[in-house]
Write a protein that binds this DNA or RNA. Sequence first.
DNA 1: AATGAGATCAACCGCGCGTGT
DNA 2: CACACGCGCGGTTGATCTCAT
Length: 268
Amino acid sequence: MCNNSGGRGGAMAARKGPWTENEDAQLVWFVRLLGERRWDFLAQVSGLRRTGKSCRLRWVNYLHPGLKRGRITADEERLILSLHAEWGSRWSRIARKLPGRTDNEIKNYWRTHMRKKAQEEKMLAKNKASSSPSSSSADSTSLTTTTCSASPTATSSSAATTEEAPQESTTNMDDEAEEEAATSASEEKKAEVVQYCSPVDMDQLWNDIAASERYPEMMMSWGVAGHVVMPAPAVEPSSPVWEFCEDYSLWRIDDQEYYNKIDQHALN
DNA sequence: AATGAGATCAACCGCGCGTGT
DNA sequence: CACACGCGCGGTTGATCTCAT
């Protein structure tokens, strides 16, 4: 299935590992051109020696406009905790409630932070057990105690998940409704995403990108129109991909509204 | 200043679901 | 109805960064 399995098309082995700036820029451009679907096709057509899967992941987790960079806030943490308590490790679903955050990000956050908290709890429990065996709940971490009681390492195991998400069935209707709402109101949500964009780098980025006008040049340099066996665009090795993107205004092909919103936000 | 441990993040993998033929 | 394909999701791993010793 993956094009690195040598299925069809190119016999080129798929690249793995960290993405280069050129690859990022290229991917961004082709996503804007083709949309966020048909990733295998996109991977082939773009000339990227990556699997569609890899392209999608890179886009979703790193390149997607509206992604929020920076630390998870206290509010977000609270939300994550409560949603995790409700849904278990349905990271993508949880992520939908946290505009600008990816499932991967939340997943990572959960793992690292909950592990820490679980360790703390363990210590607390031990201490309490040794001092007074009667009480069972740690009070200091009031917010987190209820949900992070599952050991973080075990969080990944099905046991923890099922243990923590027993209401899954009861929330089914909720979920479906939410999913529907999520897709139907995607436009709204995207605006929401934009709202949530923190003033970190992304703002600057989109601002810069919105301001530029030169994507056709890139098209030429990549020999767009379908099959691109391309030398990577010339980018200064040290320059962030965004500078490259900026030069070529990558964001103007489709989903115009969406990106307009982003642009507008960035300009505010 | 060196180094080891822990934290964080990006990326990959396998599996399952939805859809088209 | 069965099959193949494309995609998304959850779990895991490995590299890099940060901080304490």
